[in-house]
Amino acid sequence: MNQAAIILQNVHYSADGIHILKNITGSFPEGKITTLVGPSGAGKSTLFKLCNGLRSPDSGEILIKGKSIYEYDPLDLRRKVGIALQSATMIKGSVLDNLQLPLTLQGQKIEREYAEELLHDVGLGEEFIERNAKDLSGGQRQKLSIARTLVNKPKVLLLDEITSSLDRVSQHDIEELIEKINRKYGTTIIWITHNLDQALRIGHYTWVMMNGELIESGESSLLQNPQDKRVQEFVKGELE
């Protein structure tokens, strides 16, 4: 396995008295695509928020590029570890307003050409640029959300079910885009997906999480031959 972009050591996290992550220990290899699979409520999205610094673990250690998350300035950490949330929330305004939000927050503006290029990359034509973001469909919002996260040029990209509301063609386009980013910039990708075929197709490595625990991790092929009985049942159910 390559050098780790993110290392988690005995990470625990709870909220409102509910133990959401239990003793998570593992790593995400640098420059690779790792998929995170598991049933709903497994703690996958929460794990992302911990890596991006939106939440802090109750105990345990998270290292990003060998440095504890507490050694990073929170703003710097969030720009380095970008996250595209499942909700694909939009702010009021146009597609351009949303796309350049990461730069607006730093008092800068996006160059028109770069904005168009990004939109083109995610499969939204330049004709979308002046459109009201609230008028976009769920799938179009997902695409814009990915493009927006890329504006910060993150070293690690956390993708939370970004293709869940896309049709097959769009899903394929996004998969190609993410693979291109991974190859071209060496960006570490961690991708939550419910689609095990997708995990097998695009992931170099995979983590299987259930009930707040990391059950199995390794090369994506483990999904075809899991060792743990719970994972076997989960995979069987999902692939059926």
Partner: peptide, 20 residues
């Protein structure tokens, strides 16, 4: 709150996140 978390996740400050 989703908008607030979005701005924070993109590297915005709390003041920017709560401005609107």
């Amino acid at each position: 709150k989703e908008e607030t978390e979005l701005i924070l996740s993109l590297g915005g400050t709390p003041k920017q996140a709560i401005h609107t």
